[in-house]
Design a protein around this nucleic acid. Structure first.
Lengths: 232, 232
DNA sequence: AAAGGTTCTATTGTTGACAATTATTGATAA
DNA sequence: TTATCAATAATTGTCAACAATAGAACCTTT
């Protein structure tokens, strides 16, 4: 039993019990971090060799990544890492706006009082982190994701939750990582997060959705400018 | 010509270039039509034998169906056809409301004038079909899907389009098919469709989104009643 | 007889070889 | 030179055998 517990702890670190799952996590990380650059060709035998597995599970990993749109595949021709141009990112942020807006609305309806308290203390921690250290972008970014993740969880909508965690968030991460990972000014984001949390606390569904949509479309405007600068 | 004979789907008729793709289409159809009933176990070797292929491509087909949430899979334990209970359907309709609402907004922004004309003539055809034949539910339902599909295409948002066509619409179809496939009263739906088309024609993004969301949440209320009746 | 552990079986996960297909290269002719 | 077609190479798609795992059946012990 004790061995089983420790084993399970190890497994949770690896995030997957199957070979395909582990390699999927690896490749996903490589793509998001840009180690596999955008548009680059994916050759099954190469990656299989690199990770020391056969082509079977590797193929499964690739298929998963294709479904979440990190990889583009054409039958018999091969796979490439997706290229996040401005149009694609715009699509992603529009989808996010719709889904997270609904997510916030449902969170205002369903989130438990304890979860709301916990959410607000998370925001306090963010404020602390921001005022303490100006340079810890990474932690701030993780905190940002954490906030959005909690809202999505509280919505209690399984479809939306899975499509945010398993799809859109990964693409957003990849986009941030590869465009210099500037955090949208943290103080402003924090203020907006507080507004959203407040709307949820007051069970104001309409306002919660409105504020979340404004928050995301505002983030898009900043990302867009960064991308346009990069492209010129 | 549409025959009822298509249930014994012939693999060679399907356009997919790969074996996995063909079998994927077959199984998807079987699930939506209820030939593979909700919650029933999926055994790889059985299906492989049934379709006369090996387990490799069949596995790929199952993985795709898992990603679009028609199949639930647990590692080493097996797969089952999803069960569309009320909660799941509610999640689906909420996600639809968010995504198709945004879709209508973007359609009002991007849809070409010619496409709008074509859309309106499609609605005329629907009106014709409704007044002519009271019983052709199937055609009406296909027309309904056609309308929503055109909006999604006109949105020019690839992510939303793919997640509607390749995910939510299939689940909605499955739910309709298996709960007696009552079409939500076609005359009312048609009137709402006309309103939406009109808003798009006037480039009123706000109104287009609002009307589409109202349309879908209204549809949900009807579906919910049907499901509740069934469950008692 | 019930609880607990142990063997056994059915099913999934993995592998390496083989077939089919696409893209490339090179030769030939206009 | 350039276009076209054939042969070739590189890569993906498919298969059947093997390994690992979870769940069922069985036995043992109390």
């Amino acid at each position: 039993m004790i061995e089983a517990e420790t084993k399970k702890a190890d497994v949770t670190l690896i995030q997957a019990k199957t070979l395909a799952g582990k390699v999927y996590e690896c490749i996903k990380s490589d793509i998001i971090r840009g180690e596999l650059s955008q548009g680059s060709r994916i050759v099954e035998s190469e990656l299989a060799l690199k990770y020391g597995i056969s082509r079977g599970p590797l193929r499964e990993a690739i298929h998963r990544l294709e479904q979440m749109k990190l990889i583009l595949r054409v039958p018999h021709a091969g796979s490439r890492v997706v290229t996040l141009d401005i149009k694609t990112m715009h699509d992603i942020y529009n989808a996010r706006e719709a889904l997270e807006g609904m997510s916030a609305r449902l969170a205002a309806r369903h989130m438990s009082d304890e979860a709301i308290v916990s959410l607000k203390s998370l925001l306090d921690a963010h404020e602390q982190a921001i005022s303490e250290s100006e340079g810890k972008y990474y932690l701030q970014e993780e905190g940002n994701i954490d906030f959005h993740h909690r809202i999505a969880s509280a919505s209690q909508n399984q479809w939306i939750l899975e499509n945010l965690n398993g799809g859109l968030y990964q693409l957003v991460r990849m986009g941030r990582y590869q465009s210099g990972q500037q955090p949208t000014r943290p103080a402003i984001a924090l203020a907006q997060h507080r507004q959203i949390a407040s709307a949820i606390e007051q069970r104001d569904e309409e306002l919660a959705e409105l504020l979340m949509r404004r928050h995301i479309s505002g983030a898009w405007k900043i990302v867009k400018k960064i991308l346009e600068l990069k492209h010129d």
